[in-house]
């Protein structure tokens, strides 16, 4: 995926922005590739040697990469990650729906709908301003304290609500940017064909807008995945808390490293997917232009 295949045969090599890796030189540049590989190996070897041979390394190794703590902590930490997975999968679905509704509400025309636009704007301003840990604590400890009949006091539920409120605010802005990026002539053309305002939004504007904003949406998805660790403040033993419990019991930081690796393994494929989607979008755009 990094560095696409050989350039289109025959024709003049196009100015392919975003088609190639920014890390390696162009594939045609054989010498460049060799130099890049040699220099990478040399730099990494020197760095690796400098780190491993430094005076503090045995302590770092003992503190962060202790095999015994690793074996003992791995099953507990990975098992706890299931809580995070459930939380972000559920939250993501809710966020995608609520964010879209908010964005459409903010984009509604008409003087009479001013209060709707005002409310949607206020919502987005509010939840983008608040720190996640504050909203999670306020809802997760605060609402159950009211002891209202029929309102759940489950901490997982309130963490889900808090993350949905927070991230739908961000995501609605992403959607709105997408909607605003669609030229007004598109909506005007749809209206001239007899589509209603909502139909024009649904069948003409949104399909183009959503496709454009998939990469930034996935970006927010990554943010959401990481913020699932906030549920720990409510007492739920998720991946970070499970690691913290082991860390507090052993004073060894290996459980934290395990947690870090779990999040990285989850996020990096996602980041590569975003890169690929961006490149595909750019290819499509340039294909249309040509």
């Amino acid at each position: 995926m990094i560095g696409s295949g050989p350039a289109d045969s025959g024709s003049i090599p196009p100015v392919a922005i975003g088609r190639r890796s920014r890390i390696l030189p162009a594939p045609e540049d054989r010498r460049g590739i060799v130099i890049a590989i040699v220099s990478t190996v040399v730099v990494f070897s020197v760095l690796g040697y400098a780190i491993v041979s430094s005076a503090g390394w045995p302590r770092v190794q003992q503190s962060f990469f202790d095999p015994e703590t690793f074996d003992e902590s791995l099953p507990r930490v990975t098992a706890a990650f299931w809580v995070n997975v459930q939380l972000f999968l559920l939250a993501e679905v809710l966020v995608l729906v609520l964010g879209l509704v908010l964005a459409v509400l903010r984009s509604l025309p008409g003087a009479a709908l001013a209060p709707i636009r005002l409310l949607a704007t206020a919502y987005v301003d509010l939840f983008r301003a608040l720190p996640g840990i504050l909203v999670v604590s306020m809802l997760g400890f605060g609402i159950p304290a009211l002891d209202i009949e029929g309102v759940p006091n489950d901490e997982f539920f309130w963490a889900l609500v808090a993350l949905t409120l927070l991230y739908s605010a961000y995501v609605s802005e992403v959607y709105r940017a997408g909607i605003d990026s669609i030229h007004p002539s598109q909506a005007a053309a749809a209206r001239s064909l007899g589509l209603s305002q909502l139909q024009a939004m649904r069948f003409v504007v949104l399909p183009q807008a959503v496709r454009r904003v998939v990469p930034p949406l996935l970006n927010d998805f990554i943010g959401l995945q990481k913020d699932t660790a906030l549920v720990s403040v409510l007492g739920v033993v998720e991946v970070f808390r499970a690691a913290q419990i082991r860390q507090a019991a052993t004073f060894n930081n290996t459980p934290y490293v395990i947690t870090a690796v779990i999040f990285i393994l989850l996020t990096i494929p996602m980041a590569r997917l975003v890169d690929w989607l961006v490149r595909r979008e750019q290819r499509r755009a340039s294909a249309v232009a040509r």
């Binding site: 995926m1 690796g48 005076a55 302590r59 770092v60 870090a260 990285i264 494929p269």
Partner: peptide, 29 residues
């Protein structure tokens, strides 16, 4: 895919290494 895996491993190990010096400043003192 092989390239992706190499890049992934590279980034993981870089990050782990990055964690190292932070701990070393406090721990051995």
């Amino acid at each position: 895919m092989a390239r992706l895996r190499i890049v992934t491993l590279g980034v993981v190990s870089l990050l782990l290494v990055a964690c190292g010096p932070g701990g070393s400043t406090t721990a051995p003192s």
